[in-house]
Write a protein that binds this DNA or RNA. Structure first.
Lengths: 264, 264
DNA sequence: TTCTTATTGTATAATTTTGACACAATAAAG
DNA sequence: CTTTATTGTGTCAAAATTATACAATAAGAA
């Protein structure tokens, strides 16, 4: 019995313990080379892309399910997950995904779903709750699960067409990320332990989608008192070397709790 | 056949058309006599209080269900509803509501539920999505439905113990109302067409839960340019009569879209 | 070595916003 | 005509914001 079949059998057996009509999807943001990225899974069977998502056990809280699903599908554990919106249209498939009975059956076969029990489950209507997370790409090593051939970080511009309404979910996640910027531990979660002021500024610029004035950004951030200055960083470039900074975690946590009170 | 039985029969017949395991609950904010209020329903059968909530039809979007449920249960229609959070603990009952089989059966009887089909439905686990709305109390006349003996506006301080986790839902709604203050048409939705500056200030104070400095509030609000000054308001009180104001709706809408950018 | 280049850390000045308070104007009651 | 409570507006210092300037500096080029 190959891996896929084994997985299918295990999933089929677990269906009785799942709460019907509900699911979770995770938008995992990472930051690398001054670019904001999102973690996507590609299906083994038909190479389509999707967000890491899954179902809820009958005896499991929605929030716990989000953490478990993310761990099972990517290996990422103990990360900050933030619920942001619940997507509940009758037909959450994209308009171009024909929803006739035959088309749906054919699509399930594309995904390698042959078991009638699983097919019946997958044909249900699911109301899905979106969570977003912020992770430091360097510190994590996501691994695709059985169903997925790969697990890739894509910049926002690179995001391909995703299954169902997952593109919409990503867009909404970015919107909430922006609105909640002052209340989220953006820097601590997304940056390496030590980073330059430019790293931090580019991160904010990536999230806000607009440029910020360098010297004013530096002054305002430093005035918050949440950064500790470390040694200089010799990049090898022909210009003045920037200092590295690290977060004063206690102060940062407090500031985030109250909301960082300025406009970038 | 009395009303309650008729309703029970109708509900029983509709269960097949409902999406299991999902529900919506609405936190309707109103403003009256300079007090922020919430609309609550009281059950005919056992006098317990709850938020107006209900279920989703299989062919209905989650957001549409929220509008329909609100209309059916209170008569309120075409109001601005804003999704804010999805509550998904395994057991959403309050800790003091004993969850043993017998206790649950007894509780359902308290609510007048005798049909086994309805009882089975009500025993399911429901993940509920919370919506909040802002309405002008003077313009609306909510009416309780079959199941409810009354439909009352309660100030935040007056809110009694509610069923399930509804007290938690109200608290979370107020939290989101505060955070999203600058992005919501608070004034236009909650105030009458013409209002005094004090009305507006007290509204913001009620939402924020803290006093604001009168003259500075007036200066900042007027500077936004979203108010049109009307005639004076002769209240009969022994003091200088205040001006009435109305919203410049186009400008207000634009400001709300971008987010009103100042701290109160 | 010296010059050049790109970037960094910091300073400065003009402008705007905020917070705290002052005060004359005024509607109605005594 | 005086008193009272509240309103519209003004002031002023402190703080924040914006735009700009400029010396310091790491490394490559001359």
């Amino acid at each position: 019995m190959d891996h896929t079949k084994k997985f299918a059998q295990e999933f089929e057996e677990s269906i009785d313990r799942l709460l019907p009509n509900n699911s979770v999807d995770c938008v995992i943001f990472g930051y690398e080379k001054q670019r904001l990225k999102v973690l996507l899974l590609q299906w083994k069977t038909n190479a389509e892309w999707s967000l890491p998502g899954g179902f809820i056990f009958k005896d499991e809280a929605l929030n716990s399910a989000a953490h478990r699903v993310l761990r099972e599908r990517t290996g990422l554990d103990e990360i900050f997950l933030n619920q942001f919106y619940t997507f509940g249209r009758q037909n959450r498939a994209r308009p171009d995904q024909n929803a006739t009975e035959e088309a749906t059956d054919k699509r399930l076969l594309d995904f390698g779903i042959t078991s009638p029990v699983i097919a019946e489950w997958m044909k249900k209507r699911f109301v899905t709750t979106g969570y977003f997370a912020l992770v430091n790409i360097a510190k994590t090593n996501p691994q695709p699960d059985f169903m997925s051939s790969s697990c890739e970080w894509k910049t926002i511009a690179e995001i391909p067409q995703l299954i169902l309404d997952h593109n919409e979910i990503v867009e909404k996640a970015i919107g909430y990320l922006r609105i909640q910027l002052n209340y989220l531990p953006i820097g601590l979660s997304l940056l390496p332990e030590k980073f330059t002021m430019q790293d931090l500024q580019k991160l904010y610029e990536a999230i806000l989608g607009r440029p910020l004035e360098r010297s004013n950004f530096q002054r305002k951030i430093l005035k918050l008192g949440m950064l500790v200055r470390k040694e200089k960083f010799m990049s090898g470039a022909a210009n003045k070397a920037p200092y590295l900074y690290a977060f004063d975690q206690a102060k940062y946590a407090q500031l985030i709790k109250e909301g960082i009170g300025f406009s970038y």
